[in-house]
Design a protein around this nucleic acid. Structure first.
Length: 196
DNA sequence: TCTATGATCGTA
DNA sequence: ACGATCATAGAG
């Protein structure tokens, strides 16, 4: 028997300001059930997107196209394809109609390391890098186009309470980074796991 | 350790 | 054309 894992976060968790949700997702558990196997880990880096006045957000424009789902029901996955080869995964937040979500940037692998490696990572890549970065995170979990719009409060792909206060050793760090010299982005990370 | 570059395709 | 990225090659 596998040991029990915490319950999924309720929808009310996501029905708040995107920045609050981004912070509170640190330390929570991202779990995927695939082929009868549990794959996943502890969320250690998030990034809030959307709300009014975020030019970097896909939801900055009209509620149409791929970002339409960001304006919809909270606690739904927004998965998009980028750079012709990577998927990225968000959790939709806030009230319906606002257009916001939390990008899951990195997690610490806890279950299914073998299943992750079977997805063809570089052979030398250390375990802690398998879910480090939004593209690798989705690849490790086997999350792709078919997961766009899925429910995160139940079903195979869930986010669960993880005892953030205990797990995130030094509390969240909030950063301001520059993406390729053009655009400023806020991100929130646990210092307990290095990305390098 | 770092900087530069290619891969590859949906969206605007 | 360009991007909410990643892997690799080459220089220092």
């Amino acid at each position: 028997m596998a040991e029990p894992i915490p319950r999924p976060l309720p929808r009310s968790f996501y029905e708040r300001d995107v920045c609050e949700v981004a912070q509170d997702l640190l330390g929570c558990l991202l779990v995927h059930r695939v082929g009868g196997r549990r794959v996943g880990g502890r969320i250690v880096e998030t990034e809030a997107y959307g709300g009014p006045g975020d030019p970097g957000s896909h939801a900055d424009r009209a509620p149409t196209g791929r970002a339409r789902i960001m304006f919809g029901r909270p606690a739904i996955a927004y998965v998009y394809f980028t750079y012709g080869m990577h998927y990225c995964m968000n959790a939709v937040t806030g009230p319906e109609g606002v257009g916001s979500g939390v990008l899951l940037r990195a997690a610490e692998p806890m279950w299914g390391i073998e299943e992750m490696r079977a997805r063809g990572f570089p052979p030398r890549l250390p375990d802690h890098m398998l879910m480090s970065g939004p593209g690798r995170l989705c690849r490790a979990l086997g999350v792709g186009r078919e997961h766009n719009g899925v429910e995160l409060t139940r079903g195979p792909l869930t986010i669960r309470a993880g005892g953030a206060a205990e797990q995130v050793r030094s509390g969240p760090r909030v950063g301001l980074t520059r993406d390729d010299g053009r655009r400023w982005r806020y991100w929130i990370a646990s210092p307990s796991v290095s990305r390098r």
